[in-house]
Design a protein around this nucleic acid. Structure first.
Lengths: 108, 108
DNA sequence: TTGATACTGAAGTACAGACTTGAGTAATCG
DNA sequence: CGATTACTCAAGTCTGTACTTCAGTATCAA
């Protein structure tokens, strides 16, 4: 799967930044060019391009240059990796939380 | 819910660091003290305590000082916030991905 | 009470990351 | 063709974060 090639570290790091989450939200609504993404964000097009590079490496966004315009859209790989991480941890987590009081009592 | 008080930004930021993910993984297995967490991590106890402060603010970890030992364990709030974020985006995302080809054709 | 343990706080270093400017390239328009 | 558009590249700045050391404080054990 594509998710296997994606590092969860990159996904978390990418989504840690508010501007990048805003970009992801925008692209979840509709694909966009770099300059259209930059327009409402009080930063330069260059900065947006840098964010897009991070998002692309994390597998959350796909971009493709057509003529002089770069079309950006959501990609599933990063999202899949995140979903998988959450699913893997949920079992352990819930199990642990259920038994937490009991475990604390056992501990010395 | 506790998740409402948790900022998803903090959760992503907290989980962006490999050491903190390692700590979360360890605490998913069993609660631990600060020094026991630090032992296998080639960093100082102070650094671990700093990571724990980040994890605690993000709602992923709960700590409680008993005597001179700080007991650390998993907390659900951060995890809930993450699960919620993923769930909210999944719908949009899947919907968008399904229609991606179509949308790209419509775009000019 | 003395010494070891388990942290805590303050301060400083070093590197990463978000951002900028400025110059450049390539595609499209008139 | 020349002008505009849409981005790209290379520096460079500046803030934030991960980490350290060192000097505490509080607790527990003997």
């Amino acid at each position: 799967m594509a998710a296997a090639r994606v590092s969860i570290a990159r996904v978390f790091h990418a989504l840690g930044d508010p501007t990048r989450r805003a970009i992801v939200d925008r692209l979840s609504e509709a694909p966009s060019s770099v300059s259209r993404l930059a327009a409402p964000l009080a930063i330069t097009v260059t900065a947006v391009a840098q964010h897009l590079a991070v998002l692309e490496k994390s597998g959350l966004v796909r971009t493709q240059k057509v003529g002089r315009v770069r079309h950006c859209s959501i990609e599933s790989a990063g999202f899949d990796a995140l979903t998988q991480w959450v699913a893997e941890h949920r079992r352990q987590w819930e199990h642990r939380l259920d038994r937490l009081g009991e475990i604390l009592d056992e501990e010395e």
